[in-house]
Write a protein that binds this DNA or RNA. Structure first.
Length: 467
RNA sequence: UCCGACUUAGCUCAGUCGGUAGAGCAGGCGGCUGUUAACCGCCGGGUCGCUGGUUCAAGUCCAGCAGUCGGAGCCA
């Protein structure tokens, strides 16, 4: 007896007539007085459940099969046969249906065979992977993650695991989560009366990382093409559909590279992983398309793969925004940071597609971004996507030590903790660039979700770390 | 954190002018059918988010609190 994935059984990787065993969880059961029951069983390997046909002649038919409800676990063995009914090509004519686990109190089983709201499913995050939606999200997420690693590997990148705990408080903007083993109620004090962090685990203050970029630059400037892909933490009190306190970020960094190389990399990368999702998870994407009528999920992904991304200089984007009749809440002037309403106009109304905005005013971007020759803009780029806004943020890094010093002074940064970062510019500096991509935002985009909390198994947000 | 909306059965929701609670789905029982989130009938199921106030009377009006959602800021 061969135990098979339901995906393989439905894809007819086994000939009709084969004896197979499937194992999974009951979605629905329908009884027929013709002397049989239809049990839809899912094992998560694909979107569709398999239809198990259980005849009333089974020894446990009355005692067990008729008691099966949504959520029960079963092992069914039988013959893969062509279906007599409509709706599926093949089904499993069961010789045995072994019940592994019934559902305790079926009336209160949280997942019923009906459409639940995503808000409700968040309250049962431990069971929501059994829902159609979250099963599909999980498969697409996995497919994208695999494609990320595959793309970089094929392009000759090395995956670098930068630290999750960091003692460097210079990782950039963003509130950080403290990592400490000190007694929070009665911490050791210094003579001045402050907390004595020299007695803490690392002998100094430590936090969870908000970005692996500065650390990965070191590896870039030795190994040429590198990337990080790991958890990232922001203690910002952000309560939106686009923010998580714990999320996964992808940060490639390339040596001997310009901003254009960076944008090319980001575009090629996005197209590759989107194509993987379309090729490998069409069943799930089709479901998302039918589920969310307001977003053309399939067309959007296809368009993204096939068409070159629009590229526009920040200065020209400002001209576009100033030239439209549309009224904005925030006035448009050269020098402002683009507001959500501006980004939405560019992606959703003007270009109706992802757009790369490049060369931002230096005062609104981070200190490490490379100063352009105009001395007014830096070599930064954001990729904005319809429906989610900023999906990629990147830049060419400032590789000239004098210019870096100037920028740090301008930002009022103490050069001391950055001395190691400065070393890269002293010892064989090269132009280099990179970007950051929020993995969950990518999942949101591909699946046409509305809320980033549905793009990660157990979302962490202000006031919520359940499960 | 700011602005707004919402919170009623296991789930999705209705509830009129303030007069002590309803439907569909799910569950149980029965019927029917190679069924497709099947269908038909019957039955069980409620601390109306919490606290306080107004009133003869509050799911309904008022206040505070909590949670959720939408928008904004911050960002990926």
């Amino acid at each position: 007896m061969t135990v098979v994935r339901i995906a393989d059984a439905l894809a007819e990787k086994f000939a009709v007539g084969s004896k197979i065993t499937v194992r999974g969880w009951v979605r629905t059961r329908r009884d027929s007085k013709a002397g049989l029951s239809f049990i839809n069983v899912s094992d998560g390997s694909c979107f569709s459940p398999i239809q198990v046909v259980a005849a009333s002649t089974l020894s446990n038919y009355e005692s067990e099969v008729l008691r099966l409800t949504a959520g029960a676990s079963v092992i069914a063995t039988g013959t893969l046969v062509a279906s007599q009914g409509k709706g599926q090509k093949v089904e499993l004519q069961a010789d045995t249906v072994e019940v592994t686990g019934f559902v305790d109190d079926p009336e209160t089983y949280p997942l019923q065979p009906k459409e639940h709201t995503l808000e409700y499913l968040r309250e049962v995050a431990h069971l929501r992977p059994r829902s159609n939606t979250f099963g599909a999200v999980s498969r697409v997420r996995h497919c994208l993650a695999q494609a990320v690693h595959r793309y970089f590997h094929e392009q000759g990148f090395l995956w670098v695991n930068t630290p999750i705990i960091t003692a460097s408080d210079c990782e950039g903007a963003g509130q950080m989560f403290r990592v400490s083993t000190l007694d929070a109620v009665n911490p050791p004090k210094t003579e001045a009366g402050g907390v004595d962090f020299s007695k803490d685990f690392f002998g100094k203050e430590a936090w969870l990382t908000v970005s692996g970029q500065l650390a990965v630059e070191a590896y870039c400037l030795a190994l040429s093409k590198v990337y990080t892909f790991g958890p990232t933490f922001r203690a910002e009190n952000s309560n939106t559909a686009r923010h998580l306190a714990e999320f996964w970020m992808i940060e490639p960094e390339i040596a001997f590279a310009s901003l254009k190389d960076d944008a090319d990399l980001a575009e090629g990368f996005l197209k590759y992983v989107l194509k993987a999702a379309l090729d490998e998870r069409l069943d799930d994407l089709t479901f998302f398309a039918s589920r969310n009528k307001s977003v053309p999920v399939l067309e959007r992904v296809q368009q993204c793969i096939e068409q070159p991304f629009h590229r526009v200089d920040y200065t020209d984007a400002i001209k576009i925004l100033k030239g439209t009749k549309k009224k904005f809440e925030f006035a448009v002037e050269w020098g402002i940071d683009l507001q959500t309403e501006h980004e939405r106009f560019l992606t959703e109304e003007h270009f109706k597609a992802p757009v790369v905005v490049m060369n931002y005013p230096e005062q609104i971007k981070a200190f490490y971004m490379r100063m352009n020759d105009d001395e007014k803009t830096v070599a930064a780029m954001d990729i904005l996507a319809p429906g989610i806004g900023e999906i990629v943020g990147g830049s060419q890094r400032e590789e000239r030590v004098e210019m870096l010093d100037k920028r740090m002074a301008k930002f009022g940064l103490d050069p001391k903790p950055y001395s190691w970062y400065r070393d890269f510019r002293r010892y064989g500096t090269v132009p280099h660039a990179g970007f950051g991509l929020g993995f969950e935002r990518l999942v949101v985009y591909v699946c046409g979700l509305d809320n980033i909390r549905d793009a990660i198994p157990y979302p962490r947000t202000p006031g919520n770390a359940a499960f």
